[in-house]
Design a protein around this nucleic acid. Sequence first.
DNA 1: TATGAATGAGCCTTCATTCAT
DNA 2: CATGAATGAAGGCTCATTCAT
Lengths: 183, 183, 183, 183
Amino acid sequence: MAARREKYDRRQREVVAIAAELFARRGFQATSMDDLSDATGLRSGGLYHYIGSKRALLLAIFSELMDPLLEQASGIETGTPEEQLRELVRVWVAHIEAHLDHMAVFAQERHSIEHEPEWEDVRASRDAFEAILARRLADVGITDRLQHFALLGMVNHTATWLKPGGRLTAQQIADGYCDLILQ
Amino acid sequence: MAARREKYDRRQREVVAIAAELFARRGFQATSMDDLSDATGLRSGGLYHYIGSKRALLLAIFSELMDPLLEQASGIETGTPEEQLRELVRVWVAHIEAHLDHMAVFAQERHSIEHEPEWEDVRASRDAFEAILARRLADVGITDRLQHFALLGMVNHTATWLKPGGRLTAQQIADGYCDLILQ
Amino acid sequence: MAARREKYDRRQREVVAIAAELFARRGFQATSMDDLSDATGLRSGGLYHYIGSKRALLLAIFSELMDPLLEQASGIETGTPEEQLRELVRVWVAHIEAHLDHMAVFAQERHSIEHEPEWEDVRASRDAFEAILARRLADVGITDRLQHFALLGMVNHTATWLKPGGRLTAQQIADGYCDLILQ
Amino acid sequence: MAARREKYDRRQREVVAIAAELFARRGFQATSMDDLSDATGLRSGGLYHYIGSKRALLLAIFSELMDPLLEQASGIETGTPEEQLRELVRVWVAHIEAHLDHMAVFAQERHSIEHEPEWEDVRASRDAFEAILARRLADVGITDRLQHFALLGMVNHTATWLKPGGRLTAQQIADGYCDLILQ
DNA sequence: TATGAATGAGCCTTCATTCAT
DNA sequence: CATGAATGAAGGCTCATTCAT
């Protein structure tokens, strides 16, 4: 039945969201399935009905982070090169603002992502995004890798200090970063 | 006897260095004391002779990272404001280059540092460094928090892509970053 | 309605047969209800409709194995003592040939059967069969327990090497065993 | 230190013996590591110091069963063919008598041994023993597979009824079996 | 100094079973 | 009749740490 399926999917997304929050705060490894059980209200068995494994949960979090960003980023195709770059950074910062927990988990589990074959897809997504960024920078005449890395660093770092509903909007932040890069 | 003490200290520093490397590559939690035992050639009992606990090892890594940086940073007192800022960033990037493993562990265990009372001292060191940075930026007329965070982001991010002995020197990188911030 | 009842019984027997096959191959404990679910096409709820419990399934397999054999064995009443013994062994081997999976499960779960009060009935069936065997052997003058056990051993062991449709028929095998025992 | 090593080995053998007994009585899967912990007096961690894994324990039991038997069996080389066959069966039954628990575990886990690649070595040992048996039978003129299987069946089955210190000695049993096979 | 045996708490996961739908 | 969400107990195993030697 479709209604049942829909309910299942909704519950699954809830679990992933709760997991992202816990992982962000306490760390992936330091968060036990029991913690998750308490936070979701599902007993361990029920939890596994939705997630498969703790590892799969991590993968789900990464997918939720990377997939939509990549899609939005590749959809930007109108305007001058500078407008396209600015739009890309805006979308990017907005996405980070909407996924602060996901970003924290991502940063924290960097070593897993970098070294384990299991995370190939995640690495590929990240590389694809960085390729788009490099192209947009090239389109405005920036081919220096240092500036590419600088932009990457400042934007990603945003997740560690940005408070949603704070003084600065994602758009203002993004524009500020672009101003630095574009003189 | 002093010679014995010296040998003890040397061995201890070796253990911390090896630990930093393992933690950077596999993650702190994912690295077991057994892994460390294999890597150091010391059995568990011997290991505990030098380190006290796994947690203490982490603290030692953070101290090795923060303490000398803070000392160098606070020693910069000559030259124009811009020269002082540039010198600060140079020292900082050079320190990161010399402590890539420590930086990786630091980034990875961010959540512990941020939330647990045990890490108060580490937080204090970091805040002290950022205060120095803020002062140097203010001295050249930059009071916008966004630029402060941008600089912090790009410099810290350096640890993830910098390969020692690569094309760019720490000095070139630091100057590139300063150029962005100072127009 | 009788038709409904009949359908239920047929489905039930199907489930038992599939279970016997899985249990024989992978082991009783190593086979999960999920495996059974996959193999039968019934989901867990539906499965329990037919079987009651995993334990009951095991009991059903044992009953299917022992009950008809016991019935056939006690029906042998004509001919000379030697003819009766030979007929008993023929029936027995033929039954084993027709229930290889059941035999494998039986052998594997020997320890449960031997030690747990729950399996009293199964033990009783087995003892009843062995009593008939002992009587038939006594009728031909064999009272030595060693020969009784030897026959038991060789016949039961047949289940581990006999391939249905192989070179030897059940009758030939049975006669071969009897020849050994009867000189 | 050698004394330490020796103590370790002794303790390890003790654990395997206790495990064999428990597995024989309750079944391999039905015996938990906690049961073993209680029976050995070692807590779970200490247990793993000696065994590696539950699976490895099973393998150790099989090795203790098959390796010495195979060695003894291949050492029989003097006397007439009939004497050699009789000696083989005597050694075999005596070995079974001395390893009733091991035999029970072996019989019970037949399905694992038969189907899983992990048990290749155990299968190879068993096949090697059966090859020796086949050769000894051929030497006395018995090439009929049925008699080979019959002997295998009766001897292996001995483990299920033989009580150490009972009325019959291993030698008497072995001779009884050989009498059946050799007319 | 250093070893390694031993601990014991905790972890992720499985699984037979129930029950509302 | 049948589904599948949910349970909860248990299982095998890991691991930081201690301590007698």
